[in-house]
């Protein structure tokens, strides 16, 4: 019988350790497939953060460096500057890249560092049990905003891709989602483009993927997808936020 689907060579076979309904596994699979399709698994060095995303080095077959919370892009810059011919990507949660590591996000983009960053946004800190993140929506309940995020006290959520898109060194910025099969395919396209941008040496590329956290949202996997569509998608700017002419011509 013809094999129509199998595990990507980019994945190690270590079973994903995520909660039921979490979309980390889908996003990691897409990255692995892209690495395989571009034939760059052996050329790639991933950088993992701290948080649920921080387990990702176990699931890929490429080399990985794991560092301190928020520092993945700075570490990635160091790797890429040492090995300019290799492919370097970071895989980071929203708290990692838009909270404790914001300075690296801004300056990595401003310098046009030739790395690819994948940001996974579930609007809270998942691994530590669901605290407020820079991306937590107005009124959203977390363990540190038990009455909902009051903007008078905690301010407003950050839409990081919009900020990054405003910087000259960022040549490709996309905000996507994996809530439906169609959007999963869109996400894969965006991730592939972000890696091709790096292969072509055009500049910095960021793909932000909206993700669910059923455990900490207190919803079923299906309800979580619905909640993401009804609450996160209207707030966060979606689609290709920036693609320079050179990127469009890729």
């Amino acid at each position: 019988m013809e094999k129509v689907f199998g595990r990507s060579k980019g994945l190690s076979g270590t079973p994903f350790s995520f909660c039921p309904g979490c979309t980390h596994g889908i996003i990691m699979r897409l990255i692995a497939e892209v690495l395989e399709e571009l034939d760059i698994i052996e050329e790639t060095i991933g950088v993992s953060p701290v948080g649920c995303s921080g387990f990702c080095q176990d699931f890929f077959t490429c080399d990985f460096v794991s560092g301190a919370h928020g520092r993945a892009q700075a570490i990635g810059n160091g790797i890429k500057r040492a090995l300019p011919d290799k492919i370097v990507f970071t895989y980071q949660g929203d708290g990692d890249i838009a909270g404790i590591g914001t300075q690296h996000a801004i300056h990595t983009a401003a310098r046009g560092e030739k790395i690819t960053s994948i940001m996974v946004n579930n609007a809270l800190y998942g691994m530590t049990g669901g605290q407020m993140a820079p991306t937590t929506l107005k009124g959203m309940k977390t363990t540190t905003t038990p009455y909902g995020r009051e903007v008078e006290v905690y301010g407003y959520p950050i839409d990081l891709p919009k900020i990054i898109a405003a910087l000259d060194g960022a040549v490709y910025v996309a905000s996507v989602s994996v809530d439906t099969p169609k959007n999963v395919l869109q996400t894969k396209k965006a991730i592939k483009k972000a890696f091709r941008v790096q292969q072509a040496g055009l500049g910095f590329a960021l793909v932000s993927v909206l993700s669910t956290c059923p455990t900490n949202w207190g919803l079923s996997p299906q309800e979580s997808l619905k909640w993401l569509r009804e609450n996160m998608m209207p707030f966060y700017a979606m689609g290709e936020l920036k693609a320079t002419e050179e990127v469009k011509n890729l």
Partner: peptide, 26 residues
């Protein structure tokens, strides 16, 4: 060689961490 003025000291040492991981002298 390469010299990069980082965004801050935390960035600089983290870049050293990444570069050292490749075996380069940093």
């Amino acid at each position: 060689g390469t010299v990069l003025q980082a965004e801050d000291e935390i960035g600089a040492i983290s870049m050293c961490y990444g570069a050292a991981a490749t075996g380069a002298r940093v």
